[in-house]
Design a protein around this nucleic acid. Structure first.
Lengths: 194, 194, 194, 194
DNA sequence: AATGAATGAGTGTTCATTCAT
DNA sequence: TATGAATGAACACTCATTCAT
């Protein structure tokens, strides 16, 4: 709402700006997929066929670009959430499925968990807000499970969110052992102690 | 003892070499403490008062420097292991204490968990060997606990090591919430599900 | 003509870019004259009063810089070609004069023959294209001489170009014997055998 | 012969020095063959298993090392000379064969022609002396041919030596055109003009 | 609104040579 | 006599960010 209304009036001026923005996003998506989130912004601008300044106008920081990129995926994750909410037999399996979805979400780009963790500590950045939203969601699902008696009462949504991030992080670039991600997810769910 | 005697090598002309090496290590320790493991190697050399080439002679890669730095701390960690082995009432609490020790060990420098994770996938690097050693130790303690019946049988030492690293990682630079590290450690121990 | 008018491109905001580029070229010209073609690019940037990045933006490789430098001299050499074409009595003396001009051209900077030889093996680099152009010219003049019956039929333009380069190379930095260059040129023309 | 007699008296001291020297030479030969004459001296020392200082004691400059290396090949070239002297039908073909031998000699290592040319301008260096010897030889063969009437009287041995070097240089690392070396040799012999 | 040139500190790394041992 | 550690300037090249046009 707020982004479309502001400024002046006419039709044309915004048209190509929008086009530029979208094209940058597409390019960045591809680029981050290939080179990880630390890929050169200059290279993205060049590949998108825009000047570096243009990229910076739209996304003043790398984080802002990342946030915009993830916002586009928000819908996906939220749809997944609805699926989970609709389909899960109990609150515990809903929470489990959600944590796995989160972990996958944080694995789209190499190196993504790092800025997510950094952002999740604040609520002042666009990325931080995104994280906050998902933490809240996690809290809701967790609360359900706790009410149901299937989740420990001392656990907090923020911790689970962080754990999902950490699981993504551990996957990392080169993982010698394919079974580790699942093992970690299991660990977070049931712990190692009997 | 061994460091002061000239012992086997013959002339032992390493007097200043040793001094330099040690001084570089001290400087690097301080530097990494302040600026994280990605601090400038050139700056370390400069601050240590040696040429860049000298640093590179002793430590051809950043990883090698890191490994040497951690090797100096190995003793500490191993001593801690003996303490744990001697003092723990049962295998489960020994394992728990060891994982916490590991997690602290990986937290000395900002950004340390990252190269550790990367190295732990291989056994070809000095850092990788260090990791491997600790994974083995973890395996031993875990096995004890599993025999005791206090640890889940499907868990592997490698996963726990990775989890300890991930816990360190999650602590990260800016942690708004002080209780998170402990929460994560607990999560890894008992999981969130009842 | 084309360089002074803003003509097609629209805004022509390259005022300072152009200035920088030109200044870099001037500096490089002087620098290469003094220190040979292997002089430090960083030093050139510094002396030109621009950042290293600026130099690299304009000339991504040493070869590119060299090519640009020589392009500025292309005109000179081409004018000389016209003179030769206009003034020579016969095709043989035209070819001889051209080969001498080539040899001088390749002697402007110390060490220039080396990259020229390397480049003349390919047509993929800017420098290679420059060389290729001159090889073609040599071929034309040679063909004339061959038609005239004053040049051996088995000789090829590429060989003569290479010979001119080699003559430049032989001049080298320290030439104790002043008469050698001319001697070599003569050798290439008439050979040593009767 | 001359190298073994000089200096003091005893047996032992010189034994390992000699061994070192020889081993360095062998290593350098191999190294220069693989990496060209600009290969790292440090690497040679390391590969030879001696300290850098030892290498420098024996061969204070790169040129000195090169000269020693070539001295070992001198014999070969001189033997070739005897063959030529004995086997050639006339002075012209002897000279031609010798020039080819020279050109091959200067092609053993990548980049060798360059220091040879530099050295051949002086008589103050070991390499310069080597060159001088070959220039003299060239002069003798040339004189024979001139007496025979099969070589131009104005040509000098130094020029032919330089031309042989230049031919080697033109071969260079990457030669797209295989026929060029022969073409250049031919050019030097008969020239391009009829 | 967009451009893309400019910045310039920063990166890891190499190497011929000297010198303390 | 030999060692090899130390030197430290030099190298090419990158990139996030600013700013004149």
């Amino acid at each position: 709402m707020s982004t479309t209304t502001s400024s002046s009036s006419g039709r044309a001026p915004r048209a190509d700006a929008r086009r530029n923005r979208d094209h940058i996003l597409e390019t960045a998506e591809q680029f981050f997929s290939e080179h990880g989130v630390n890929g050169s912004l200059d290279a993205i601008a060049k590949q998108a066929g825009v000047g570096a300044g243009t990229l910076y106008r739209h996304f003043p920081t790398r984080e802002a670009l990342l946030a915009a990129l993830l916002a586009a995926r928000d819908d996906q994750l939220r749809r997944r959430l609805e699926e989970i909410r609709g389909g899960a037999d109990d609150a515990a399996s809903a929470l489990g499925a959600w944590l796995e979805a989160l972990s996958e979400w944080a694995s789209v780009f190499d190196g993504l968990p790092e800025p997510l963790r950094a952002a999740s500590a604040t609520d002042a950045s666009p990325l931080g807000l995104t994280c906050l939203g998902f933490i809240t969601t996690t809290d809701e699902l967790l609360l359900n499970a706790q009410r149901e008696g299937s989740a420990r009462p001392e656990v907090r949504g923020r911790d689970l969110f962080l754990a999902a991030l950490a699981t993504s992080w551990a996957r990392g670039a080169a993982m010698a052992d394919e079974s580790s991600p699942a093992a970690l997810t299991g660990l977070v769910r049931t712990g190692w102690s009997v």
